[in-house]
Simulated assay, not measured.
Amino acid sequence: MKKQRVLTGVTTTGIPHLGNYVGAIRPAIRAAAQDNVESYLFLANYHGIIKCHEPEQIHQSTQAVAATWLACGLDTERTTFYRQSDIPEILELNWILTCITGKGLMNRAHAYKAAVDKNLAENQDPDFEIEMGLYSYPILMTADIIMFNAHTVPVGRDQIQHVEMARDIAQRFNHRFGKNIFTLPEVQIDENVELLVGLDGRKMSKSYGNTIELFLTPKQRQKAVNKIVTNLKEPNVPKFKGESAIFEIYQAFATPDEYAEFEKQLNEGLAWGEAKKLLAAKIGEELDDKTDAYHDLIANPKRIEDILQAGAAKARVQARELLVEVKDAVGIRTLA
């Protein structure tokens, strides 16, 4: 059976939280363990510098994101795990693709259009403070994807356009130079992806300030869980799903039977405070050992670096081979 090559990139601009774990990290690690999947996972640090202009934040986030995936059980024997900046062939391919990509395609990119609309709404020049990184990053994303001829790219619905653009650019290259060098990637949308709710009941997001950090001590975790918004119902008064995010967060970490019992207790009047203790303990059952592994990795950055370098060496074997084909197709080759 031919393996399905799946590629995922993680931007290095923040520290992963509980929502990232439930919605992206845990399902990606489980998917990578399937026998019919060939998984590529990379730290998108060149994408990170598009929006983040704090060098130390990029550096620290790169270490934290790498440590997070490793601590959560990423199998680097089964997954090609690398840092984007360690694959110079990607940037060479990025330039070649830039030379054949229509400006009109880039003008339609959602992020660029949103920035222009914001400027117009504020009576600014349409391109005020818009840098070329933002404008052309769909081309770099295309290079990331087709460098390894990924078959599928798991994305949220807001990222579908980027994969569609990658298909357009790859197809344009293949047609212009008469060679089917690039696989046309397909979007992979998982309708069952869990969007974890945050402390206030909205989607857990750093922009809302409603996240729970992923790696906490039991005491820190309990303190964070205690901030989940509840109503004023007293103990022994029935409580129901929809009244607090406690229900949804517990469900994300429990088996169906465990969740049914938890919901039953709340329906029968379990106090919110007691429910929060049960929730913190349930999260800890899954994350305490990962927390220890994470802090061990953070304390030993050379271990992380060695893993990333091994992944880059593995990835570059394929990247070099493909880039030779690409350069030959466009006429960049030796004279004899």
Score class of each variant (00 low, 15 high):
residue 107 N to S: 12
residue 268 E to L: 10
residue 332 I to W: 09
residue 290 K to E: 10
residue 194 E to W: 03
residue 84 Q to A: 11
residue 333 R to V: 14
residue 254 A to D: 07
residue 245 A to H: 03
residue 182 F to Q: 03
residue 196 L to F: 07
residue 217 T to K: 04
residue 191 E to N: 11
residue 250 Y to T: 01
residue 256 P to T: 01
residue 28 A to I: 13
residue 293 A to G: 02
residue 192 N to M: 12
residue 22 V to A: 13
residue 167 R to A: 11
residue 169 I to G: 05
residue 211 T to W: 01
residue 310 A to I: 02
residue 27 P to W: 06
residue 186 E to C: 04
residue 95 W to K: 00
residue 168 D to N: 13
residue 283 I to W: 08
residue 134 L to A: 11
residue 27 P to C: 04
residue 259 Y to V: 03
residue 279 L to C: 09
residue 218 P to V: 12
residue 189 I to P: 02
residue 33 A to C: 06
residue 292 D to I: 06
residue 103 K to V: 12
residue 333 R to D: 04
residue 72 C to D: 06
residue 102 G to A: 15
residue 143 A to K: 02
residue 334 T to F: 10
residue 90 I to P: 01
residue 66 A to H: 05
residue 70 L to N: 06
residue 191 E to I: 05
residue 168 D to I: 14
residue 44 A to S: 13
residue 131 E to L: 14
residue 18 L to N: 07
residue 294 Y to A: 07
residue 209 G to W: 03
residue 178 G to A: 09
residue 217 T to S: 15
residue 294 Y to P: 02
residue 78 R to Y: 05
residue 110 H to F: 08
residue 198 G to Y: 03
residue 286 E to K: 10
residue 247 F to L: 04
residue 233 K to I: 02
residue 14 G to V: 00
residue 148 F to Q: 06
residue 131 E to I: 11
residue 116 V to N: 04
residue 173 F to W: 10
residue 168 D to C: 09
residue 324 V to A: 14
residue 221 R to Q: 12
residue 271 A to R: 04
residue 304 I to V: 14
residue 190 D to G: 11
residue 186 E to I: 00
residue 152 T to E: 15
residue 27 P to F: 05
residue 279 L to R: 05
residue 241 K to V: 15
residue 214 L to H: 08
